[in-house]
Simulated assay, not measured.
Amino acid sequence: MHILGIMTGSKSPRPRFWDRYRSAAQQENFDDIIVFTPSSVNLSKQCIQGFVRNSSGWEKTECPLPSIVHDIGYYSNRATIRKVKQIKANPSIPFVGYALGNKWRIHKQLLNTSIRPFLLPTKLAKTTDDIFQMVRRYRTVMIKPLNGKGGKGIIKFSEQPDKSCFFQPSGEPGYSFKRSEAAARLEALLAKRRYLIQQWIDIRDEHERTNDVRILLQKNGLGKWIISAQAIRHGKDGEITSNLKSGGTAEPLEEGLAKRFNDEDQKAILKQVERLSRRLPKVLERVYGKRFCELGVDLAIDRKQRVWLIEVNIKPGKSVLQLFGPEAMDAGFRAPIQYARHLLEKNKIKT
Rank of each mutant, 00 (worst) to 15 (best):
M1A: 07
L4E: 13
R14W: 10
P15N: 15
F17S: 09
W18K: 05
S23Y: 03
A24F: 08
A24E: 12
Q27E: 13
N29K: 11
N29C: 14
N29P: 08
S39D: 14
L43I: 04
Q46L: 09
Q49F: 07
R53Y: 09
N54G: 03
K60V: 03
K60T: 12
P66R: 00
V69S: 08
I72A: 06
I72P: 06
Y75G: 08
T80I: 01
R82A: 13
K88Y: 06
I93M: 12
K103F: 12
K103E: 13
W104V: 00
R105D: 03
K108G: 00
T113K: 00
T122F: 05
T128W: 02
I131Q: 03
M134F: 06
R136H: 12
R136N: 14
T140H: 05
G148F: 14
G148L: 15
E159Y: 11
Q160N: 14
D162P: 13
K163Q: 15
S164H: 11
S164V: 08
F166M: 13
F167S: 14
Q168W: 04
P169T: 03
S170Y: 05
Y175Q: 06
R179F: 09
S180A: 09
A183F: 02
A191Y: 15
R193C: 06
Y195E: 02
I201W: 01
R204E: 10
R204K: 15
T210M: 15
K219Y: 04
G223W: 05
I227Q: 01
R233I: 05
K236F: 01
L244K: 00
G247Y: 07
T249Y: 03
A250C: 08
R260C: 09
R260T: 10
D263Q: 12
D265S: 12
Q266G: 04
I269R: 11
V273D: 10
V273A: 11
R275I: 07
S277T: 10
P281H: 08
L284F: 03
Y288T: 10
F292Q: 08
E294R: 02
G296I: 04
I301A: 05
D302P: 03
D302M: 06
R303H: 00
R303K: 11
I310Y: 10
V312T: 00
I314N: 07
P316M: 02
S319C: 02
V320C: 15
Q322M: 12
Q322F: 01
P326V: 11
E327G: 13
E327N: 12
M329C: 09
F333S: 05
Q338M: 12
L344E: 04
L344G: 01
N347Q: 12
K348A: 14
